[in-house]
């Protein structure tokens, strides 16, 4: 589904990604871990072209998204993204947040989009908040709505960029639970996170990044109990 080949990304003189190769298959939950500044967020943002790669190739469903003529908007419709700071639209109600893109992009008419939105809101237990504005919600509620907003486009892939890092500790659980549900439903997911418990329990594969490269990857068991690389071991010893 996702195929990354020799991906490089520099900001000015600073090279953040130094040649990443990555394959994500349908239904996989790939969890990317690593210290701050290791390039995890830049990697996930390159997958939907929020950052334009300096070099290398990113394929989504076999189509190269960073090709000069690629229809990025169309390819982004297949990929939902969830941000650390939620990025809900503050001037729109919860319902409008969820229905805006499907309606604007001709995926559904207003009634259909609202039906889908109500189904999603029921699933995340926030149907009663449909007419509220984001400012009236807690952090955990906002993030669940943000996930629903992305799901309303019926994406094939969901990208999560540190979805729980800006949450109060007591709200982390509700968001992770929703992500677990999503993983169980067979969604292809790439998750950048510091939640090692989630990586271990839900991840089908864990990738450890440091210094702009993938240092080690494997099943959660391999990474968490028998990491081979020294840097992986030292990172895990600090966070576990």
């Amino acid at each position: 589904m996702i195929s990354v080949k020799n991906l490089h990304k520099s900001f000015g003189d600073l090279e953040v990604l130094k040649g990443i190769d990555l394959e994500v298959k349908q239904g996989e939950v790939v969890v990317v871990i690593g210290p701050s500044g290791s390039g995890k967020s830049t990697l996930i943002r390159c997958l939907n072209m929020l950052e334009v790669p300096t070099d290398g190739e990113v394929y989504i469903d076999g189509e190269m998204i960073n090709a000069p003529k690629a229809n990025i908007d169309l390819m982004r419709q297949k990929m939902g993204m969830v941000f650390q700071h939620f990025n809900l639209f503050p001037h729109k109600t919860v319902m409008e947040n969820i229905t805006l893109a499907p309606i604007r992009l001709g995926k559904a008419n207003k009634a259909e989009a609202e039906n889908t939105a109500r189904e999603l809101l029921t699933r995340i237990g926030l149907l009663d908040k449909a007419e509220n504005y984001p400012v009236q919600l807690s952090g955990g509620q906002k993030q669940r709505i943000a996930i629903a907003r992305a799901l309303a486009m019926h994406p094939e892939i969901m990208l999560f960029d540190e979805p729980t890092s800006a949450l109060d500790p007591e709200m982390v659980g509700e968001v992770l639970d929703l992500m677990k549900d999503l993983a169980k439903s067979g969604m292809t997911m790439v998750v950048v996170t510091h939640e090692m418990g989630f990586a271990r329990e839900v991840g089908t594969r864990v990738i450890f990044m440091d210094g702009g490269v993938i240092v080690e990857e494997g099943t959660p068991d391999q990474i968490f109990t028998s990491a081979k690389n020294e840097r992986t071991q030292s990172f895990l010893s600090k966070v576990l």
Binding site: D73, Q77, L88, L100, A101, R149
Partner: peptide, 13 residues
């Protein structure tokens, strides 16, 4: 906030 643009664009707008 730049995140607003990113959220919009990431939805395919």
């Amino acid at each position: 906030d730049k995140g607003q643009t990113e959220a919009g664009r990431s939805l395919g707008l």
